[in-house]
Amino acid sequence: MRIELKDLEFRYQMNTPFERLALHDINLAINPGTYVAIIGHTGSGKSTLLQHLNGLVKPTKGSVVIGDRTIEAGRKEKHLKGIRKMVGIVFQFPEHQLFEETVEKDICFGPINFGVPEEEAKKKARIALKLVGLSEDILEKSPFDLSGGQMRRVAIAGVLAMEPEVIVLDEPTAGLDPRGRKEIMDMFYQLHKDQGITTILVTHSMEDAARYADEIVIMHQGSIFQKGTPFEIFSQPEQLIEKGLDVPETVRFQLKLQKELGVRFDHPCLSVEDLAGEVKRVMERGSR
């Protein structure tokens, strides 16, 4: 399923004294099966952008095309449920949305809302629980008796059980420890690889973006500042730094080394392994 944002603009509190421009001149196409990372500072509009992806907010100008539905500014939209079934969102700190008496009921909540029969929903709950790395014996527990990390996983399972074609992740690992962070990120990547789920990751972490995404979109002050493959984006790190944005630590290190050592790297390195190899190569070349 393809998602396209066309000439999109969004203002909060239109026609009140509190009106505020949050997004403008957004043109973005997300092709099926891609992994896109959206990056930017707090307040750059990335969270507002993601809410357009399943009709939680409507543009004040322009349009959003989601599969065969078009949400246009100024038009009354009804029956957005279909869209929401196809585009699942994992919000920041998703454990805050848990409410049912048991883990099973909570995971089934989404699927049942979208018309899945109860028995089938329960099956889906078990599959989703396995995906997030939890065992079935917590199904009957109250979600509020779990540890923070487990709650996060149950909440994610609740979205996965909806079997969306597109999954939007808003800082899914915020507040987790390093191991938890890696496990969750790897899990989503595996899901993307195995099932071809279109994945849209909103993050502060340039490292995660560089590691997982096919395409990176950089937001700055409510509009798209740059988009391209990680390779393209980090080939010109200076532009990002100028805007006060981060670059992956590997690229930052390359810049330092280039300056101090007076050498040039051929390409941006996006993993520690790659960087170590390049540093070695560059130094050996320099010595010859």
């Binding site: 939680l56 009804k78 929401r84 079934k85 699942g88 919000f91």
Partner: peptide, 29 residues
Amino acid sequence: MKAQTARGVDFSSGPVKERVKSIVPLLVP
């Protein structure tokens, strides 16, 4: 509200009974 809307809850339309029911996933959290 947004998180539950994304999970298929409809807060703004539908029969009254459904709408009252939709308060639970909002109030409990």
